[in-house]
Design a protein around this nucleic acid. Structure first.
Length: 157
DNA sequence: CGCATGACGTAGA
DNA sequence: ATCTACGCCATGC
């Protein structure tokens, strides 16, 4: 749990944004950062997911009340953390490959095809599964944003 | 309180 | 295309 109110707000924004990612789709840390209005801190997005509370079933009743409530809203089960990968389309290996493998498995369960690179890197094709709206779907009420979140994701070559 | 680290991204070389 | 340097800032020591 974040220490300062600011950080808490940031964490909340990140988790909420991640929850907007449709099943079977993926996006990047940087895009999440953009969506919540802090495009310069994709790294902090990673921090948020790293500190994502565990599943309620595993939560100890030793936790404080506020922490419990926080975890009830955002936890390993309610936030689709697996749908967030890095800008290169690769599942961040973090420190150990097991985490990435676990994430890959979670994605496959949603129908996302994960391919393995020459160096064992797990990657997802953004052209097929990418989700990069210009703004959060929930924010578009009254917002006269003229963006066209179409043709955002493109091929390479 | 200071220093190092990291689920990242971008700009330069 | 690949590699290095730096910004960001919550956590951990």
């Amino acid at each position: 749990m974040p220490r300062t109110p600011e950080a808490q707000s940031f964490f909340h924004a990140v988790y909420s944004a991640v929850q907007q990612i449709p099943p079977g789709k993926v996006t990047s840390y940087g895009h999440i950062a953009k969506l919540i209005g802090t495009p310069q801190r994709p790294r902090q997005v990673g921090v948020c997911l790293k500190h994502l509370p565990p599943s309620p079933t595993q939560t100890n009743s030793e936790e404080h009340a506020d922490q419990q409530e926080y975890a009830s809203r955002f936890n390993h089960d309610t936030v689709p953390w697996q749908r967030v990968i890095n800008a290169k389309g690769v599942i961040s290996p973090r420190s150990q490959p097991s985490g990435a493998l676990n994430q890959a498995a979670a994605l496959e369960l949603e129908g996302v095809t994960v391919t393995t690179g020459a160096l064992g890197e797990l990657m997802v094709d953004f052209a097929a599964y990418g989700w990069f709206p210009a703004s959060l779907p929930s924010d578009v009420d009254g917002g006269d944003i003229d963006e066209d979140f179409d043709s955002q994701n493109e091929d390479d070559t």
